[in-house]
Amino acid sequence: MSHIAHPDPPPEPTPEEMASALADLEQLANQNSTVAVPSRPVASGETKRVRKLRAEVAEAHLLADLQDDDAPLLLDTAKVRKRRKAAQEAARLHALAQDPEMRAWQCARMRQLLVTAALVSLTLALAWSTAGVQHFAADGAPAWSPAWIFAWLVEPFLSLALLVVVGARAYLGTRGQPLDDPKLVRIEWLFLALTLAMNAWPYLPFVAADFSLSRLVLHVLGPIVAVAIVTALPIILAAFAGLDHGPTGTPTTPSYRANAATVDKLTDRARDLIGAGQLSVDAGADKFRRALGCGMDAARAVRDALRSNPA
């Protein structure tokens, strides 16, 4: 069997060699320490949390300074401006309502509305009684016979004649010239009496074969309403004519004033009525207007003339 030869181990380094190797390593380390090695910058200590807190503190200082300024409180919000606008509008409307010219316009408008409603109601009341008058005028005539057809015309021509008189009195009353002629008043009552009689006659207790109170009331309802309107309308218009709206500034339209000659004549006539005991010197302008049949302006002038010179 052959013998395999092993290599000899390396010799141990001497102390001088060890010292030399350590010196070389120390020198290499010193060289590496002088080389600039790139690295991340060192943080100054302000983290994200610190920066956030610093911003909040700065914002708080600014808000504290701004809170001492009252400028935002002096500004009107949309709601305040809306309320202020409404308040100013209400104040101007109130001031306008106190103006004499505005009050006169409102009075004229309301008077026209009342007169229109009264005339419409009167027309409907007379139309309501048309069937009753036709039944009375037909007197049992067969339907569609000449007498039956012409009976429908009785109430319309009576109503038209009545509306002519009432309409004229109403219009002149709105113009401050009431029409109180006794003849016209008697004509009104004659037409109303005829309408009422023709509606009620066939249903009276001693005339109707089968009396019914409800039927009688329904047939006289139209004439009764017509009587009420004709009676009340002149009183309402006289009250409107006597309204005093206060002194006006510069009139927009020329107003009527009675001339001196008319006032003198009416004053003499009023003295005669006072001497006869039919009128008092202390009466109001409306009573002078009724007694003399003149306008409200002339009545006021006569009243003032008598009070200043009663003799």
Results as ranks from 00 to 15, higher is better:
His3Asn: 07
Ile4Ala: 08
His6Asp: 10
Asp8Phe: 12
Pro10Thr: 03
Ser20Gly: 08
Ala23Thr: 15
Asn32Cys: 12
Pro38Leu: 07
Pro41Thr: 06
Ala43Glu: 14
Ser44His: 12
Arg51Asp: 03
Ala58Ile: 03
Ala60Lys: 12
Ala71Pro: 00
Leu74Cys: 07
Lys82Ala: 12
Lys85Trp: 12
Ala87Lys: 13
Gln88Asp: 14
Glu89Gly: 06
Arg92Thr: 05
Arg92Ala: 14
His94Asn: 11
His94Lys: 11
Glu101Leu: 12
Met102Arg: 14
Met102Gly: 09
Ala118Gly: 04
Ala127Thr: 12
Pro142Lys: 05
Trp148Gln: 00
Leu162His: 02
Gly173Lys: 04
Gly176Arg: 11
Gly176Trp: 04
Leu179Asn: 09
Asp180Gly: 13
Leu184Glu: 12
Leu190Phe: 14
Phe191Val: 11
Phe191Ala: 03
Leu192Asp: 02
Asn199Met: 01
Pro202Leu: 02
Leu216Pro: 00
Val217Asp: 02
Leu221Phe: 13
Pro223Leu: 00
Ala228Glu: 05
Val230His: 00
Leu233Thr: 08
Ile236Ser: 04
Leu237Gly: 02
His245Arg: 11
His245Gln: 11
Pro247Glu: 11
Thr253Val: 15
Pro254Trp: 03
Ala260Gln: 13
Leu266Asp: 15
Ala270Thr: 10
Arg271Phe: 13
Asp272Ser: 14
Leu273Glu: 12
Gly277Val: 10
Gln278His: 08
Leu279Glu: 06
Ser280Asp: 15
Val281His: 13
Val281Gly: 15
Ala283Leu: 08
Asp286Asn: 13
Ala291Met: 12
Gly293Pro: 05
Ala298Leu: 07
Arg300Ala: 10
Ala301Val: 10
Arg303Met: 09
Asp304Gly: 07
Arg307Val: 15
